[in-house]
Computed example of a mutant assay.
Amino acid sequence: MREIPNHELIAKRIPAADGNRRSLIGFAHTFNGYAFLAGEEPSERLSGDWSDLSLSELRCLLFWQVRSDRWSGGLSTDWPSLWSLLAVIRSRVEAGALE
């Protein structure tokens, strides 16, 4: 999957909360959370209320949660939370909050 910068995101191309996990995982991998955090621990930067996070931080959080799912063998993922996070990302893009 190729990386997609925030300014190239199109809301209607962000997966809908329809339960298609493959589409959510694919979208999560359009953001390089490793590069974004540059060695920082995700918990240090991405904790707290989602409303306080930038679009890049929200995308990084989605990336890390999807990676965590892979590392745990799919046993620790809160899919409803991931779908909610994706909805927040889509609403930010719809509002033009692309920082």
Results as ranks from 00 to 15, higher is better:
16 A>K: 13
68 S>F: 12
36 F>I: 06
22 R>N: 09
24 L>R: 04
63 F>K: 05
19 G>C: 08
20 N>M: 09
55 L>T: 03
52 D>A: 13
54 S>M: 07
93 V>L: 12
60 C>P: 04
9 L>F: 07
92 R>K: 14
22 R>Y: 12
8 E>H: 13
18 D>W: 04
15 P>Q: 12
40 E>G: 05
69 D>F: 03
74 G>F: 10
60 C>K: 02
45 R>S: 03
75 L>G: 10
10 I>G: 04
54 S>A: 10
35 A>Y: 08
3 E>I: 05
23 S>C: 05
19 G>F: 08
38 A>S: 15
96 G>Q: 07
4 I>P: 11
42 P>S: 04
43 S>F: 09
61 L>Q: 07
18 D>T: 10
40 E>C: 13
68 S>P: 00
19 G>Y: 01
83 W>C: 03
26 G>E: 14
71 W>V: 11
35 A>K: 11
35 A>V: 09
83 W>H: 14
65 Q>L: 09
75 L>I: 01
99 E>A: 15
65 Q>N: 15
25 I>Y: 03
54 S>Q: 06
82 L>C: 11
66 V>E: 06
59 R>Q: 12
35 A>L: 14
82 L>S: 06
32 N>A: 14
36 F>D: 07
48 G>K: 06
57 E>G: 09
47 S>D: 14
53 L>P: 01
59 R>W: 08
62 L>W: 02
12 K>N: 09
41 E>V: 03
81 S>W: 10
74 G>K: 02
2 R>Y: 02
99 E>P: 05
84 S>V: 01
88 V>C: 02
92 R>T: 00
55 L>V: 02
3 E>Q: 08
